[in-house]
Nucleic acid binder design. Structure first.
Lengths: 222, 222
DNA sequence: TCCTTTTTGTTGTAATTACAACAGAAATGT
DNA sequence: ACATTTCTGTTGTAATTACAACAAAAAGGA
C-alpha cells in the first residue's frame, strides 16, 4: 500500500491533503489497491456503487451496450481519473455504464459510505475531499459535453474534424496522439469503422490532416 | 427577494439548510433574482463563469452551435435546476455552451467566489452547500450519459425508441409528456425534423407508440 | 370570426452511411 | 524468420438520412 502513496498523493482526489492526513484517511476509508486484467469489469451496468475508484495505473473504458448489442464507448480513462464517481452520490442509483479494464490496471478503492458518514463532522479533511469531488465531476461534466459535441456532428467527416480539433486544443498542439485504435474511435464517435477509415484517408489525401497509427497532425485550423 | 424564499428553500442547492441560515447565506453570497425573456442568453459560449445560476421559474435550453451553424440542444432545464454549474469549479475555464431562456424565466444568481472564499472556514454551511453541489453535478452527469445513449443509437427509429423508453422510465409510466416540440427534439437527437416526423408516424401506424403533440404513449417494452 | 403565423406531417431525390467481404500492413508469439 | 493473429484500409451495394418543397393542422392575434 505504502508504495502507492506518491501516486495517490498526486491525484486530484487528494489534492490539498498532507501526507499524514492521507495516511489516516486511507485507513479511515478502508482503502485498498486491486489489480485488474484485460476485459475485467470494474463496474457493471445495473450495480449499485458505494465505492470510489481511483485509477493508479492503466486504462479503463467507460462503455454502454445498446439494446441491439452494439458497443458505445462513452470515454476512456487513465491514471488519476475516477471511475463512476457520479454513481456514489445518490444511493439506490443503478450504474448506467460498464467500466472495462483495457490491459492491466491498478485501482485504489475507497469506501464512500465511511467517508461520508464517519467524517461528516470528525474529519476536517472531509470538506477538502468533497470539494475535490466537486471539481473532478465538473471536469468530467465538461468532457461529456465535449463528447456530445463530437458525436453530434452530421457527417463522419465533421465528426472526425471536430474530434481531432478538440484533441488538438486539449494538447495545445497540432501534433498529438489519440488514445483510441480505429475500432475504439469508431465506437466512440458512433460510426462505422471502415467508413471512418475511408474518410480518414480522404482527409489525408486532401492535405487536411496527416497520421500514422495513433499519431495525428492537424494541418488546418478548425 | 423574500417572496422567493420558499422556492429557493426547496431547491436541491439549499437542501438541508435552515431558514435563518438560508437568509444569511443569500446575503453573504450577494444573491439576487433576475428576470429573463425569450431568447435571452444567460450564459454565452466563451465567457468565464463565476456565478451560480438557479432556475426559480421558467425554462432554459443548454445549446451549442456547430462550426457549420447547426444547433445542438444539449439539455432542457427547469425550475430547481442549476445552469452551468460545472463551469464555476475551475476559474479560467471558458463556457462550452450557451444557456438560452425559453419564454419567461426567473433566475437566482449567487456569487460563487464569495461562497468559496469567505465561507471556507467561517460558515459551517459551506460544507453542506458543497456537498449539495456534488450531488447536483452527479445527477447532471448521469443525465448527460443518458443523452449520449440516446443520440448514440444508429437509426432515427432507434434514437426515438431509446429516448422515449428512457423518458418512460423516468416518469415511471407509459404515458408522459416530453419537454420538446418537434424541432427541439430533432435538435436534441441530432436528426432531421421531417425525417423524425415521418418515423414517428410510422411507429404510430405500426402500433408501437401513440402520441398527440407532446403527450406520448409507449405501447411496448423496450 | 377570420387572417396570420407557427408547428407538424408528407413525399421525392440526392447525399451519406452501414455493412460485408476482402486485401494489405503491423504486431505477436514461437 | 515464419506463421498466426490483429488491426487498418478499400471497394461496391443496399439501406438510411438530409434536404427542400409543400400540405395540413394548430395556435395566436385582431
Amino acid at each position: 500500500m505504502e508504495k502507492y502513496y506518491s501516486k495517490i498523493k498526486n491525484s486530484p482526489l487528494f489534492c490539498g491533503i498532507t501526507d499524514e492526513e492521507l495516511e489516516r484517511m486511507l485507513k479511515c476509508f478502508g482503502g485498498y489497491v486491486k489489480k485488474y486484467e484485460d476485459g475485467d469489469m470494474i463496474i457493471r451496468q445495473g450495480e449499485t456503487i458505494s465505492k470510489i475508484y481511483l485509477i493508479l495505473d492503466g486504462e479503463v473504458n467507460i462503455e454502454k451496450e445498446t439494446y441491439w448489442g452494439r458497443r458505445i464507448i462513452i470515454q476512456k480513462l487513465y491514471a488519476n481519473n475516477n471511475i463512476g464517481l457520479s454513481l456514489v452520490a445518490s444511493k439506490n442509483v443503478e450504474a448506467n455504464i460498464n467500466a472495462l479494464c483495457v490491459g492491466h490496471a491498478l485501482i485504489l478503492i475507497l469506501n464512500y459510505d465511511k467517508c461520508s458518514t464517519m467524517c461528516q463532522n470528525a474529519c476536517m479533511h472531509h470538506s477538502v475531499l468533497i470539494s475535490n469531488l466537486f471539481k473532478i465531476l465538473s471536469k468530467e461534466n465538461i468532457e461529456l459535453i465535449e463528447k456530445i459535441e463530437n458525436i453530434s456532428q452530421k457527417t463522419i467527416r465533421d465528426k472526425l474534424l471536430t474530434y481531432l480539433s478538440n484533441e488538438g486544443q486539449k494538447h495545445k498542439s497540432n501534433i498529438f496522439e489519440i488514445p483510441f485504435n480505429r475500432q475504439e474511435l469508431a465506437d466512440y464517435l458512433n460510426i462505422d469503422r471502415s467508413a471512418m477509415s475511408f474518410e480518414l484517408s480522404k482527409l489525408k489525401s486532401e492535405g487536411l490532416i496527416n497520421y500514422k497509427k495513433n499519431k495525428f497532425v492537424l494541418k488546418v485550423e478548425i
